[in-house]
Computed example of a mutant assay.
Amino acid sequence: MEIFYLLKGMLMGLLIAVPVGPIGILCVRRSLTEGRHSGLFSGLGAATADALYGSIAGFGLTFVSAFLISHELWLRLAGGLFLVLLGIRTLLTQPPAKSCQENRIATGQKKSSMLRMYVSTFFLTLANPITILSFASIFAAMGMAGAKRGYVPIIIMIMGVFIGSSAWWLLLTGVISLFNLKCNTEVLRWVNKISGTLLTLFGLVAVLSMYL
């Protein structure tokens, strides 16, 4: 029976992670410019945040979800401004005069850099508390909200959420990494321009949505 809860959680994690958004753009850009490990650690940060929000929804921690949702505008503002700054920084970043593979070897293995990328996407994902509502509705539809069937099934499903979300980022960064040997400085320059523009637009939309 536990395997079904795990599979349900994995499906939930995939459904939450797959839609294209700023996190996906970040992971793709980091995978191309800094190596697969950079993109994967970025994705794991998002997967951890998804699992945390899934825990809040699954265990029926209404006081936590109510607090986060009541401060949604401020969280969205913080996340939006972060995206704008990150987008502008990406636009202004000049790729090094070395191949993607050389760049991966030079920078992709730095532990401090990996931690920074993990933390950045973790908090960026947390800046969207509406994710809690998505998990809450799914848990409620399954009759799982508030630990109605005990804590063990919920814990197993939350583990599945993390595994499912992580699996998506592992697949995405794995596919993207196949292009590492083929790209060059000019390609990386365009990657920075496109991803920087998209990140900035995502951030501006998040900020402007406060006034709509």
Rank of each mutant, 00 (worst) to 15 (best):
R36A: 01
F63P: 06
I176Q: 04
A145Q: 13
G54H: 06
P22C: 07
G24C: 12
P153N: 01
S195L: 02
M144N: 03
R36I: 09
I155V: 15
V64Q: 07
H71L: 13
T33F: 06
F139P: 05
A47S: 14
L171C: 13
L170R: 02
G21D: 07
N192C: 12
Y118R: 04
F82G: 01
K148H: 10
G9M: 03
V119A: 15
S70P: 05
L77I: 12
I156H: 03
T33R: 05
L6N: 12
L198P: 09
F202P: 11
M117F: 05
E102V: 09
S137I: 01
T107K: 09
I138Y: 07
R149F: 07
P153C: 09
K182V: 09
L81W: 01
F82Q: 08
E72V: 00
T121W: 09
K193Y: 15
I155W: 12
K98D: 05
N192D: 12
R76W: 04
V161D: 01
L201G: 06
I138W: 15
M210A: 14
G35T: 00
T200A: 15
L172F: 13
K111P: 08
I155N: 00
N192E: 06
L212C: 03
S166A: 15
D50I: 07
S113C: 00
I155D: 00
M117E: 03
T200L: 15
F139Q: 02
M10R: 04
L40T: 08
F139T: 08
G58I: 10
R29F: 04
G150F: 05
M10S: 09
N184T: 11
G60D: 07
L91T: 02
A17P: 11
E186N: 07
P95V: 05
I176K: 03
K8P: 04
F179C: 06
Y53D: 07
S166N: 02
T131S: 13
A46G: 00
G150I: 10
V119I: 15
F139M: 12
Y118N: 04
T48H: 00
Y211A: 15
V64N: 12
I56Y: 04
Y118T: 10
T200V: 10
M10P: 11
L204M: 13
T125N: 05
C183I: 11
L73R: 14
L212Y: 02
T48W: 00
A78S: 15
V187K: 12
R189A: 01
I163L: 14
S165W: 09
I138Q: 11
L32W: 10
L81A: 04
K193D: 02
Q94S: 15
M210R: 13
T33G: 10
C183P: 00
V28I: 12
A66V: 04
Q94I: 14
G58D: 03
I158K: 09
S137P: 01
I130L: 15
S42R: 08
L81P: 00
L7A: 15
I194D: 01
A57F: 08
V84N: 01
G164F: 04
L68P: 06
L77S: 13
L201E: 08
T33H: 02
A145I: 13
V18H: 14
L208M: 14
Y5A: 10
I23Q: 06
S120Q: 06
L126Y: 05
L188G: 01
